[in-house]
Simulated assay, not measured.
Amino acid sequence: MSKAFTKETDDDDEDLSLPPLPAGGKNYITPEGYARLKDELLDLIDNERPKIVEVVHWAASNGDRSENGDYHYGKKRLREIDRRIRFLTKRLEIAEISDPAVHHGNDQVFFGATVTYADASGALQTVTILGIDEADSALRQVSWISPIARALLKARVGDEVKLATPAGIRDIEVLEVQYPAPPTVL
Results as ranks from 00 to 15, higher is better:
D64E: 08
L78P: 08
R36M: 14
Y73F: 12
L163C: 04
K154T: 07
E96V: 00
P166I: 14
T128M: 05
V161I: 12
H72K: 13
P100V: 08
R79S: 12
D13Y: 07
Q125Y: 15
I45Q: 15
E48F: 14
W144S: 01
K75A: 11
R84W: 10
Q141F: 00
S66F: 02
T128Q: 10
F111G: 05
D15F: 11
T128N: 01
G105N: 08
V142D: 03
L78T: 07
M1E: 13
L139K: 14
S98V: 12
E80Y: 05
P20Q: 13
K7N: 12
A149W: 04
I81C: 03
L16D: 15
L124G: 01
S61T: 08
Y34S: 08
F110H: 15
D11A: 06
S66Y: 04
H57K: 15
D133M: 12
K76F: 14
T128E: 08
Q141K: 05
A23Q: 11
Y34P: 02
T128D: 00
Q141A: 02
V109R: 12
H57T: 15
I148D: 03
P147C: 06
D43Q: 12
I169V: 15
E54V: 03
L152I: 03
K3H: 09
E160L: 01
W58C: 01
K76Q: 14
T165V: 05
L124C: 04
S61A: 10
P50E: 10
I169N: 04
M1S: 14
V127F: 06
T184L: 06
E8I: 11
D82Q: 04
I169K: 07
R140Y: 07
V56Y: 12
E93Q: 11
I85C: 06
R77E: 15
D136R: 10
V115Y: 08
P182D: 04
L41Y: 13
D70C: 09
T114L: 03
Y179K: 01
Q108H: 10
G158Y: 14
A135M: 03
A123I: 05
P180Y: 02
L92M: 07
D15C: 09
R84N: 05
D136F: 07
I129Y: 04
A164G: 07
I172E: 02
L18T: 10
V102W: 07
K7A: 09
L153I: 05
D99P: 07
N106Q: 12
L18N: 09
Q125W: 13
H104G: 04
S17C: 10
R150W: 02
D64V: 04
A4C: 03
P183C: 00
Q108E: 14
A164E: 14
Y73N: 12
K76R: 14
P166C: 06
D39V: 00
L186I: 13
I145R: 05
L175D: 06
I172C: 01
V109Y: 10
H104K: 08
Q178C: 04
I29D: 02
R91H: 00
V161P: 02
P147N: 13
P183V: 14
V157K: 15
H103P: 03
G112Y: 05
L175N: 12
Y73S: 10
N47T: 11
N62C: 15
L124H: 08
I132N: 05
V185T: 11
V56P: 13
D10H: 10
R91E: 06
E96I: 00
V102A: 11
G112M: 04
D133G: 03
R83L: 00
M1F: 14
L139V: 01
V185Y: 09
V53Q: 15
E32T: 10
A164K: 15
G63Q: 03
L16I: 14
R91K: 03
